[in-house]
Design a protein around this nucleic acid. Structure first.
Length: 293
DNA sequence: TACCAGGATGCTA
DNA sequence: TAGCATCATGGT
């Protein structure tokens, strides 16, 4: 998804393209804290067959928001009030695999640049015309590269001389493409699996660990209870839960953050976010947005 | 210059 | 199994 100009979004998914316009108020500014309206530039049939599911429009977000606000957790309630409009996109699993392999140890602008570069190098160029306010506009973009295209380009096709700043992720992407050709399964098959089995399958690919697997399950396979624990979430867990709880308890020594282990963070997650199951991933997105603000 | 970024891997004890 | 160093690159 790319914000072409304020309130104008271009959405790419597989071979599809969609223009979305966010409704503005009389001041020509997006309304803060008020319900927003979106116009989808596609047929009703295409909307119902594809984009409705992509934008997760059939989920009852209002009840999830209500539950969070009523939870008694003031930090969650604050993040929820500000970011409850976030929806978990139902994106393509292969695209999520490669995108989140790229994301590791990178900043968000750099991730976007890498993905765009990969699409330009191994994707297929497309163009569509969009009519808005009586004016026709031609939009050009590149599809997300297939596993076949990446594998065919070889390891060298992803190196520094290719113009892609993938670094050590180069090998991860190439090997995952080869492995996907060998034992990749259909999106529907992964989505039909139980969480543990689906995660185990993803962990079998090179470059996919616990965090990346949870991102793929959350953003690609509809597992909205998946809760990726990244650096930002670790900061939140430490600051908002570990330190506050320990300080209030008054008995334990407050450890510096670098002393907390992965098991500690998983324990903090279970203790403080278990109540939001089976929608923990949605709550995770609210606090992530609040943290990177 | 030093440190960090939506981590994963491979080695060692 | 846990803890650790290492892995490229761009940005601050």
């Amino acid at each position: 998804m790319y914000e072409r100009e304020p309130g104008v979004f271009d959405v790419y998914s597989g071979e599809r393209y969609l223009r979305v316009i966010e409704e503005c108020n009389e001041d020509n500014a997006v309304s803060e804290g008020r319900p927003r309206k979106y116009t989808f530039f596609c047929s009703g049939t295409e909307f119902d067959l594809y984009w409705r599911r992509y934008f997760d429009l059939d989920r009852d977000y209002a009840s999830i928001v209500h539950g969070a606000v009523e939870s008694g957790d003031t930090y969650i309630a604050g993040a929820c009030r500000k970011y409850s409009g976030i929806r978990i996109l139902h994106q393509d699993i292969w695209e999520m695999m490669i995108s989140f392999i790229i994301s590791q140890q990178k900043q968000i602008p750099s991730i976007r640049k890498c993905i765009e570069g990969l699409c330009e190098r191994y994707g297929t160029e497309k163009s569509t015309s969009v009519e808005r306010n009586g004016i026709k506009e031609t939009v050009k973009w590149y599809t997300f590269p297939t596993a076949e295209a990446i594998a065919a380009g070889g390891l060298a096709g992803l190196d520094g001389q290719s113009g892609l700043s993938l670094g050590y992720r180069q090998r991860y992407i190439y090997e995952t493409a080869v492995q996907y050709l060998d034992r990749g399964i259909a999106n529907d098959a992964l989505e039909a699996m139980a969480y543990d089995g689906a995660k185990k399958y993803l962990l079998s690919f090179t470059g996919i660990g616990e965090k990346v697997a949870n991102c793929i399950l959350l953003f690609g396979a509809g597992f909205v209870d998946a809760f990726p624990i990244d650096t930002h979430i670790k900061d939140i867990l430490y600051r908002e839960y570990y330190v506050k709880y320990t300080a209030n308890n008054g008995k334990e020594t407050i450890l510096p953050q670098e002393k907390l282990t992965q098991a500690d963070y998983e324990g903090l997650t279970k203790e403080n976010f278990g109540r939001y199951s089976p929608n923990r991933g949605i709550v995770q997105q609210w606090i992530f947005a609040a943290e990177i603000e």
